[in-house]
Amino acid sequence: MGRSRGGLTTKIHALVDADGRPIRLKLTAGQAHDGRSAADMFETVRPGQILLADRAYDSDDLRKNLKARGVWGCIRPMPNRVHIPVFSP
């Protein structure tokens, strides 16, 4: 549990396959940054696969890591980005 504006909270990060079956789950404190907290979960994504992620995981570091491993990241960009990466809704 972690303290945030809403009180004591916990986040559940889930990596699922194309059918929605869980591959990895991780609990973090509510105030923890999503992208940095769950970065180690993406190690199971293999070359040729596509990672669909929420904008909370949008970071240049994650995108570079995925690209270097041959994974295409389809991550909705944060609205305050200056250089908007390719995204397919």
Score class of each variant (00 low, 15 high):
Met1Cys: 12
Met1Lys: 12
Met1His: 11
Arg3Glu: 06
Gly6Tyr: 06
Gly7Ile: 00
Thr9Gly: 03
Thr10Trp: 11
Lys11His: 00
His13Val: 08
His13Thr: 11
Ala14Asn: 05
Val16Lys: 02
Asp17Glu: 05
Asp17Ser: 04
Asp17Asn: 13
Arg21Thr: 11
Arg21Asp: 04
Arg24Phe: 06
Leu25Gln: 13
Thr28Cys: 02
Ala29Thr: 07
Gln31Met: 10
His33Arg: 06
Gly35Ser: 11
Arg36Met: 03
Arg36Glu: 06
Ser37Lys: 11
Ser37Cys: 09
Ala38Lys: 01
Met41Gln: 02
Met41Arg: 01
Thr44His: 03
Thr44Asn: 00
Val45Gly: 00
Pro47Trp: 12
Leu51Met: 12
Leu51Arg: 08
Leu52Val: 11
Leu52Pro: 06
Asp54Met: 11
Tyr57Gly: 03
Ser59His: 09
Asp61Pro: 01
Asn65Phe: 07
Leu66Arg: 04
Lys67Thr: 11
Lys67Val: 07
Arg69Met: 05
Arg69His: 10
Gly70Glu: 09
Val71Lys: 05
Trp72Ala: 12
Cys74Arg: 09
Cys74Glu: 07
Ile75Leu: 13
Ile75Ser: 08
Pro77Ala: 13
Asn80Tyr: 15
Arg81Cys: 10
His83Gln: 14
Ile84Trp: 15
Val86Gln: 14
Phe87Trp: 14
Ser88Pro: 13
Ser88Asn: 13
Pro89Ala: 10
